[in-house]
């Protein structure tokens, strides 16, 4: 940093402002989110298993992280510039939620088994875990397909996550409650965006109607898993930290019942994707789609695990 101005935030030189880390090198794959921040370092609520809270943070973080990575796949490929900006904004909100939750999980010890270098917890957990260690619901990892399926996917994901986050604002864990408080506002916009497109496409032309219905049919097999509670969730529901996913069904059903008839669409009857031996995404048992998502997300960081700039 010797060659830079001592006060690099000055706006007379924008290039200085690009390289103003307070350390000498910034790891190349993250922006250095500071895990020393206010709520993140709070202890786990009293009487609650720290590892359980860490795992629950990973579950909610991974849902958002993998969903965000999927949505980012539309960048430079969306049908209209406005939709590209919208999809990227939704992805960015979810990434922000994931980063705080990953940092919280890391603070509670979740990153240690995967640490290979000096990276922040959020980066260790994002780039150096294998598929079996990811705890996201399988809906998050599914191929987004065409724009119709993407919209169906956002509607279900946002309606479900909004119902969850609304209840999580009362969590005894201060980070979960704080993330939820912000996420509720963001997800309300995501859900409205998707619902308005479902209406436009479903009640549009014959072709848009057919593709919107096919999109819904395509994501539907992953909906049932959203309402299944994992043992960690059950224990944390008891402790006042987590939300019981079974409680969310009513809210999601109400959204579906409001949107689909207005869009002249029918509620799909495609059968649910079964769990494997009673285990699903929350246990690290994923569909093969996750491998592709992780390869794209992780390969560069893994090829250069100590890279800085």
């Amino acid at each position: 940093m010797d060659t830079h101005s001592p006060h690099p935030g000055h706006d007379e030189n924008v290039y200085d402002a690009l390289s103003t880390a307070d350390d000498d090198g910034r790891w190349a794959f993250g922006t250095g989110f500071d895990a020393g921040d206010a709520e993140i370092t709070a202890p786990a609520p009293e009487g609650v298993d720290r590892a359980d809270v860490a795992t629950y943070c990973l579950m909610l973080a991974d849902d958002a992280l993998i969903a965000s990575q999927r949505l980012a796949g539309w960048t430079a490929k969306a049908p209209e510039l406005e939709e590209e900006v919208a999809l990227a904004n939704i992805a960015l909100d979810l990434l922000g939620q994931a980063r705080v939750l990953l940092s919280r999980a890391g603070h509670l010890g979740a990153a240690e088994p995967y640490r290979v270098g000096p990276q922040d917890d959020e980066d260790v957990l994002t780039y150096f875990r294998d598929d079996r260690a990811f705890r996201n619901v399988t809906l998050a990892e599914t191929d987004l397909g065409d724009f119709g399926r993407t919209i169906a996917w956002i509607l279900v994901f946002a309606a479900w996550r909004l119902a969850l986050m609304q209840r999580l604002t009362g969590s005894r864990d201060p980070v979960l409650a704080a993330v939820a408080g912000k996420a509720v506002k963001e997800l309300t916009y995501h859900r409205d965006y998707a619902a308005q497109w479902v209406l436009r496409l479903g009640d549009g032309t014959e072709l848009s109607h057919a593709r919107m219905q096919a999109g819904l049919d395509g994501v539907w097999p992953h909906v049932e898993e959203l309402f299944l509670a994992h043992d960690v969730e059950r224990r944390l529901v008891e402790a006042g930290v987590a939300v019981d996913p079974a409680e969310l069904r009513g809210d999601v059903d109400a959204v579906v019942a409001q949107v689909l008839p207005a869009a002249t669409l029918t509620r799909p009857e495609t059968p649910a994707v079964g769990l494997v031996g009673g285990r699903g995404g929350r246990d690290g048992v994923h569909t093969e789609a996750l491998g592709g998502v992780l390869a794209l997300m992780q390969s560069l960081a893994r090829a250069h695990p100590g890279a800085t700039w």
Partner: peptide, 19 residues
């Protein structure tokens, strides 16, 4: 932050330190 993923947060921190 304004939004969870607000990318300007890092720039705000740097500018605050400098100011």
């Amino acid at each position: 932050p304004t939004y969870s993923g607000c990318p300007a947060l890092e720039a705000m921190r740097d500018d605050l330190r400098a100011a």
